[in-house]
Design a binder for these strands. Structure first.
Lengths: 119, 119
DNA sequence: CTGGCATATTCCTGTTCCGGCATACTTCTC
DNA sequence: GAGAAGTATGCCGGAACAGGAATATGCCAG
């Protein structure tokens, strides 16, 4: 049933700076200072955003002497991917004539996805 | 290069009610009243959320006499899917031994994705 | 054209969120 | 140890956002 993304995941990704951070960390792990330089953010602000990402489980920290090296933890993104799955048929059906390639996106009967996320 | 998701898409999806709405609309198009009943929200609040979704391009409206029937427009989700793509290798490489199935997720050389979203 | 239904919009309030500045904490260097 | 580098946290003001109530708008039935 593939757990839907945690609310924290969504709110973490809602911010452009945090998405940019994730983009940089996807390339390679980086210390906070590198991120401060790359994005044009103050160090405290950067740390706070990293905190949000960390608490959402999107990044992991490993301490290297005084510096903290952050790297992406893809797990919440897997959940996002799963969340997206049922919507995928909405366009793959029409645009992708090849249809059902044998990935997870098996063609299920309509209107029976997990109701998910209903508050 | 697959345009990255608009900021509006992310903020629209950041709200649980709006995600729930999208989930309901994915099953079938619905009029506002149906959504008001399904979610436990006031009608004005519902309309406002629909407005956000609409302006993000995530839903389309078609007028049916006095009622407005909403349905999902998957286009922004395609962008989301594309945004997710470069991250997918982070877990498909490790978990999915089958690797590079021939979808869009071709295996590119690391650390060269579009820098995207940098504010 | 009057009244009623379905939806959108406005106004207002409480809350959350972001950014900057100052500061505390930890670890390295000398 | 003293000081510096690297990072995290607290506090604050301003902006953005969510929800409710009341109201406005469009459309239909009689």
């Amino acid at each position: 049933m593939t757990t839907p993304p945690d609310a924290a995941t969504w709110t973490a990704l809602a911010d452009p700076h945090r998405r940019a951070m994730l983009g940089l960390l996807r390339q390679r792990p980086r210390a906070v200072g590198e991120l401060v330089d790359a994005l044009e953010l103050s160090q405290p602000s950067t740390s706070k955003h990293l905190r949000v990402l960390r608490e959402a489980g999107l990044v992991r920290v490993r301490a290297q002497a005084q510096r903290r090296v952050y790297e992406v933890d893809p797990e919440p993104l897997v959940a996002l991917d799963a969340w997206l799955a049922p919507y995928r048929r909405l366009w793959s059906d029409s645009l992708d004539a090849l249809g059902r390639r044998l990935d997870g996106t098996a063609v299920e009967d309509p209107a029976h996805e997990p109701s998910e996320d209903t508050p």
